[in-house]
Design a protein around this nucleic acid. Structure first.
Length: 251
DNA sequence: AACCAACCCAACCGCAACGGT
DNA sequence: CACCGTTGCGGTTGGGTTGGT
């Protein structure tokens, strides 16, 4: 018999988080930090399990989260990394400071997969799809353009909102008066806790003041910086190749 | 306006990995 | 080494949103 799930206790709340719960969790973590997730809900006065609190914090409330849609360059880098690493979302996410594995996974499943399929590329193998089995001809220009346009519009709107606020706090917390010193301190603490694969050197190079879009190099590999540069380089090459492909296709 | 289907993403689940004893 | 508690990860799902009819 397996281990008991952590959320089976009667009386624990599940489902979407309320603003009040978010506030409680954020204030508790910013003032006390995290020693043990299991104790967090109890001490913060939340009727949630620790696992749920951890997920909410990591995927939504973390101060160093980068809000807004992923850029085309980020998307291309995801494709490149996925080709190398497969479905290792947390590993892939470590290349995108401020992005969560969940966010990247969702983006892959809802957008990138389709984009690749439309281009005649198998999202699993990253190889061209067999012509006979290929359902969507890439000649379907309108379909491809409609996806791109929809995404661009959303991107524009989200970027506008993000710039207007000029802060990466969740929208429902913008008016909250949070202790600035604690907030800044938490950037350091949390980025260390939740980006374990980012080296200290790389971490120092990251501007956590909410506007950073610099990718960090993972620390495990000895030649991480070289790999990082390679990935950026190959990303640029991929983009170029893709643009050429589309140009040849539609002109 | 009402309905429906497709889409999107926050949240959940279960297992793996890790660390302490 | 075995056991146990905790955290991390990847797959999946449910419900809200959007777009089309």
């Amino acid at each position: 018999m397996g281990r008991q799930p952590c959320c089976d206790r009667v009386g624990l709340k599940r489902g979407p988080w309320t603003i009040e719960e978010d506030h409680k969790l954020v204030h508790f973590i910013l003032n006390n930090g995290i020693q043990c997730w299991r104790t967090v809900p109890k001490l913060a006065g939340l009727q949630r399990c620790g696992k749920s609190c951890r997920l909410r914090w990591i995927n939504y409330l973390r101060p160093d989260l980068k809000r807004g849609a992923l850029s085309e360059a980020e998307e291309d880098q995801i494709i490149e990394l996925h080709a190398r690493l497969g479905n290792r979302w947390s590993k892939i996410a470590s290349y995108f400071p401020g992005r969560t594995d969940n966010e990247i996974k969702n983006h892959w499943n809802t957008r990138i997969k389709k984009r690749l399929q439309l281009m005649g590329i198998d999202p699993l193998t990253h190889q061209p799809i067999d012509k006979e089995k290929y359902q969507h001809e890439p000649d379907d220009k309108t379909e491809l353009l409609s996806i791109t346009e929809t995404y661009d519009k959303r991107n524009e709107t989200e970027n506008f909102i993000e710039n207007a606020n000029d802060i990466s706090l969740p929208n429902n917390m913008l008016s909250e008066n949070i202790n600035e010193e604690l907030w800044n301190k938490s950037f350091k603490t949390m980025s260390t806790c939740y980006s374990p694969s980012i080296s200290l050197e790389a971490e120092e190079s990251i501007n956590f003041s909410t506007t950073s879009n610099v990718a960090a190099a993972p620390a495990e590999e000895e030649d991480s910086v070289q790999q990082w540069m390679d990935s950026i380089f190959s990303c640029a090459i991929n983009q170029l190749e893709e643009d050429l492909f589309l140009l040849r296709k539609y002109n």
